[in-house]
Design a protein around this nucleic acid. Structure first.
Lengths: 128, 128
DNA sequence: CGGTATCCGCTCTGATACTG
DNA sequence: CAGTATCAGAGCGGATACCG
């Protein structure tokens, strides 16, 4: 079997503009409908939400429950296996928090206005 | 001050096709010259290597030491601060290892040949 | 409501050539 | 050796329209 990178595997799953947002919402809210996720993440398009959820479902991190009714109702939640992602998210979040402070020390607020490589994204935090 | 996402901060820094590769090499080999990194990561182009290293340097994760000589010599290494990334990398790597097994159970080897969303990337592992 | 299909622009990445 | 500059292509992400 081809040797895939353990690290890259994790990275791939977290990567993408929206995956983390979805995971974070689902983790704190429990079960959510498609439309609830849309509302919770205003800037995401249906296409992206669908796509990202599909990938997460494929990886057994998100569970998709379809109710056969009109109008349709679909609920998403983190699988039991998916809960194992929590420590990963938490570790990254913790490091990220520290890093933001570190960056502030290195580059003053004034300097922040200039264009720097790899500016941090604006995303909601994990715990709060 | 704008509230940046702690999690997104970490993600941004690890994200990109090559950042992890560079970090992993530097972490295990210590100090490396530009050309050594190129050799260690055969498929990366000069442009990408330069670009990624610049970003890592900006984030104080990688140190760039220039020797004023002809021909030029530039050495890269992980900063002391950058060592703090290790637990993050390790956590992700550990989870990734488990996830690969989990995926194998869910989808048989035969099935792996089909095109699935978000196939894991081929990257060298962290520890070995 | 919860998607899919299509088009389209932009960024990211890569190949190549040039420079100090 | 260690880059920079330039151009071109692929793929990600977004807007819109349509469907069960």
């Amino acid at each position: 079997m081809t040797v895939y990178c353990k690290f890259g595997t994790a990275l791939d799953i977290l990567t993408g503009k929206w995956k983390s947002l979805i995971l974070l919402r689902l983790l704190s809210n429990g079960t959510m409908r498609f439309s609830e996720l849309q509302k919770a993440i205003p800037d995401i398009s249906k296409k992206m939400l669908t796509q990202q959820l599909k990938e997460l479902e494929y990886h057994d991190i998100v569970h998709r429950e379809v109710y056969a009714q009109i109008p349709p109702k679909v609920e998403y939640s983190i699988t039991e296996y998916g809960q194992l992602m929590k420590p990963v998210l938490q570790t990254m979040s913790d490091w990220g928090a520290g890093h933001m402070q570190h960056m502030e020390k290195l580059y003053s607020e004034e300097d922040e206005k200039g264009a720097h490589p790899s500016e941090p994204r604006r995303i909601d935090s994990l715990g709060g």
